[in-house]
Amino acid sequence: MTTYSTNEFKPGLKVMLDGDPCSIIENEFVKPGKGQAFNRVKIRNLKTGRVIERTYKSGDTMEGADVIDIEMQYLYNDGEFWHFMNPESFEQIAADHNAVGDAAKWMKEQDTCMVTLWNGVPLSVEPPHTVVLKIVETDPGVRGDTSGGGGKPATLDTGAVVRVPLFVQVGELVKVNTRTGEYISRAKE
């Protein structure tokens, strides 16, 4: 197993802490001029998302976590699991609700998502930054309104609800920012 010394600590490094895979967020070197050096580290637990602070004696090591980010194609949901395929190896994996989380409401079949795997098992799924989805339900807009000011809620074909301008109608495609959940524009097929 890979181990990392404090000299290798940097934001983004994946390490094991208390049996869970974690990612280093911040690493500060602290040393009295004539004393022991320490590394004060902020670490995010990749399973729970919790951020914790730890201090290591400089020169200490942490076990690396076999965590990789890989682009995968979302195939389908069987009611319990979301299935993804590696477009290069055609290998398929199934992610549970804990891993998919909020990404579920943005994912459409065939979309390419970033799947974080720990020892080959999905830890988390990130949808594309922007997605194009179809409006399945929204109030009829006011004719002539093109400004988009105010807006109205619209339900998309994945189940997500976003605010759209009044002129956007059921059956239309819209481009949405998945990070903020905000409408960007109308879209064509």
Binding site: V30, K31, P32, G35, Q36, F38, R40, T55
Partner: peptide, 11 residues
């Protein structure tokens, strides 16, 4: 002992 003192000191 001095290592632990330094830990308290720095933190």
């Amino acid at each position: 002992l001095d290592g632990w003192r330094d830990l308290v000191l720095t933190h």
